[in-house]
Design a binder for these strands. Sequence first.
DNA 1: CGCCCAGTTGAAGAATTTCAAACGATGTGG
DNA 2: CCACATCGTTTGAAATTCTTCAACTGGGCG
Lengths: 249, 249
Amino acid sequence: MDNTTAQCPNHHPKRDYSHCSNCRLSGICLPLALEVSDIERLDSIVQRGKPLQRGEVLYRAGDPFTAIYAIRSGAVKTSHSDREGQEQITGFHLPGEVIGLDGPANNRYRNTAIALQTTSVCAIPFPELETLSRQVPGLQRNLLQLLSREITTEQRQFGLLGHANADGRVAALLLSFSVRHERHKLSPSEFTLPMARGDIANFLGLTLETVSRVFTRLQKQNVIHAKGKDIDIRDLDALRQLAHNPEDL
Amino acid sequence: MDNTTAQCPNHHPKRDYSHCSNCRLSGICLPLALEVSDIERLDSIVQRGKPLQRGEVLYRAGDPFTAIYAIRSGAVKTSHSDREGQEQITGFHLPGEVIGLDGPANNRYRNTAIALQTTSVCAIPFPELETLSRQVPGLQRNLLQLLSREITTEQRQFGLLGHANADGRVAALLLSFSVRHERHKLSPSEFTLPMARGDIANFLGLTLETVSRVFTRLQKQNVIHAKGKDIDIRDLDALRQLAHNPEDL
DNA sequence: CGCCCAGTTGAAGAATTTCAAACGATGTGG
DNA sequence: CCACATCGTTTGAAATTCTTCAACTGGGCG
């Protein structure tokens, strides 16, 4: 029902963000550092559908792998489940981030991606992207970087679960959101988490109750102020110290 | 001091494995499913150095990223440390596996790779590989698959730390080695672990003592027989059940 | 022989989970 | 408009798992 311009963020309804070349996210997304003419070629294969509502599935584990997705607005969680049906959330993804990179491994998505809010994405069909990236070296580089960065991100999280206690894990998560918000020139200290406590707990390998207790504890120590999903970071250094934070997030 | 043929596995000293085209690992390594002529092109950029001794560093976190490495024989651990100097082992790598894929993210290795035994590797210079993979679509595909597979592997481990108890984590590790040995037509039930208990503990986010206790416990239950690093899996199903194992490893 | 290292074992302690109850916001039907 | 059910969250107390600290074992090597 919508035309392409309808996917623009609600608060800027008049501007046309429906092309990579004028997308506000081009600085952190796949087109990064490409020439204008190359961005246009990339743009020509990108597909923009209508926004997903909260809870809608973008792709499901086991689906044939067709495209990777750049998030334009909103938030997405990715998860996979073992055969006992036990769900493990593998990540929370914000605008400018690309998901579906688990697909090329065996031509099926390994994860399920679900919108946490109203979310709009750019679909980048993978076969086309592969072809194009053979012709555009910078794009090939960006694609490889994207995958490699995903690897290092996972490794960091892996290290977190390996060596941090409950406080450290929650602190690291909050810091991660903080710096990702800052990247968008949003406040790094005040933001709203897109997911519920249960999702945080699942992601961090803790129970819902423990996460809740950590939030109250951090609040009593005046490190953060949290009302539900609304977070206000009061003492960034304390948070960093708790998270034992390795370089960037 | 060695010529190139000297990197052949010790137990087959007469055969020439110094080219991808006759490497026994080509079925699981980067050349997988490439045409003969393409394998030869790949081969022409691959560098084979002299073997590393136990404890030697292949690359160090922070080093400029120059090449990815395919392991020919031996075993390697990769790890990274946060700024407190806390080390987190991110993986144990066996022949046929490729490491260094964390490098493209920002042109530096994020991890340190250390030989756990005498180990020989093939170095594949990355700029050359990038160029070549633009010309050989199958190679481009394999490279992307390699990275993507690394992502899914990390995610599995991530899920493990998130949702498995000490027994489950150790069981999963043993199973992982079991199937990886099987891939090489080695016994999936009897093998020698290349790393010490402390490394296992670090990798699994446990203490050395807990790992040791799990080994004794599994032994008392007749699930495994373990004498130091020598493992004999007695009850594969029990192990699988403990690990709650999601699909392949 | 004696030292050292890796691994094992024990007992006490701490952190997290589990079970249970209660809360506050939100929505629904009478 | 109020009673009631629901959902996400918070809080408490007991149970459990894992860690910590410490002692001990056994094999390898000078």
